[in-house]
Design a protein around this nucleic acid. Sequence first.
DNA 1: CTGCAACTTAAAGCCAACTTGAGGTCAACA
DNA 2: TGTTGACCTCAAGTTGGCTTTAAGTTGCAG
Lengths: 139, 139
Amino acid sequence: MKSIDISEVAKLSGFKASALRYYETLGLIQSDSRKGLRRQYDDTVLDRLALISMGQSAGFSLEEIGEVFQKDEHFEIDRQRLHTKADEVEQHIRQLRILARALRHVADCTAPSHSECPTFRKMMAEAPKLATRQKQSKH
Amino acid sequence: MKSIDISEVAKLSGFKASALRYYETLGLIQSDSRKGLRRQYDDTVLDRLALISMGQSAGFSLEEIGEVFQKDEHFEIDRQRLHTKADEVEQHIRQLRILARALRHVADCTAPSHSECPTFRKMMAEAPKLATRQKQSKH
DNA sequence: CTGCAACTTAAAGCCAACTTGAGGTCAACA
DNA sequence: TGTTGACCTCAAGTTGGCTTTAAGTTGCAG
């Protein structure tokens, strides 16, 4: 419950103060009070920021992250949405596992051309199935 | 070895033709010949594009992806770089696993406030250690 | 051989996610 | 009680990753 100020939040979260103010305009976080003009934060903001950070690294836009945070009265819809997001993250993880394996393979394989290496070919063959096509799916 | 044209590559890869041309200007891909003005691609470009796509979803910039593709004469440096990238991807995976668990927890936990739920608190406590602070680390 | 859909280039435009800058306020320390 | 440095707001600027537009070219079906 202790109050911390913006520079402290910045230090602890790794986000710049300017980013924190920006997130506030988007409704992703709030300061719970002001000391004069200065924002004072409850330390639970740090959990929220950690989730934002992870959400970003999972490829979600700030808008999507904001939607997930909106705990409106429709609890069931909310829970469903969260599970859907979790599914997306797990899909993403599967893709990244292939990438990690591909990178290590390319690093170690002495074959002249990877496109002719059966191990590599087999790995690549798994990827398209998993690919989360965000490409043109916008809209 | 068969030659395919840009719209075919677009269809098969999920990238738009404009994106493919853009990637060419960045040196991420090349067309191996032209039929008149029109680009003709070797089908190995599809593997490359799959790697680009996965690299992007792992949060790497096109510039970083390009660097990894530069197979210059310094093979050892190249291999080292690839393993480093693979390490980053694996770190990223660990973070995403926490995110997935956190999302499912928030969806299912009936506690009034997650910040007071010990399960949630414990999960969040693991996150900061893993966080790949790309934030200000840019230079 | 003609027409046209599908390509081409170069430049400008767009969006998300911030950052920076200018000008102002104020908490706290000396 | 004054000053100073950390905060504030609002607007404009920046970067990355493309897309769109305009104007031109060309493979190929009919």
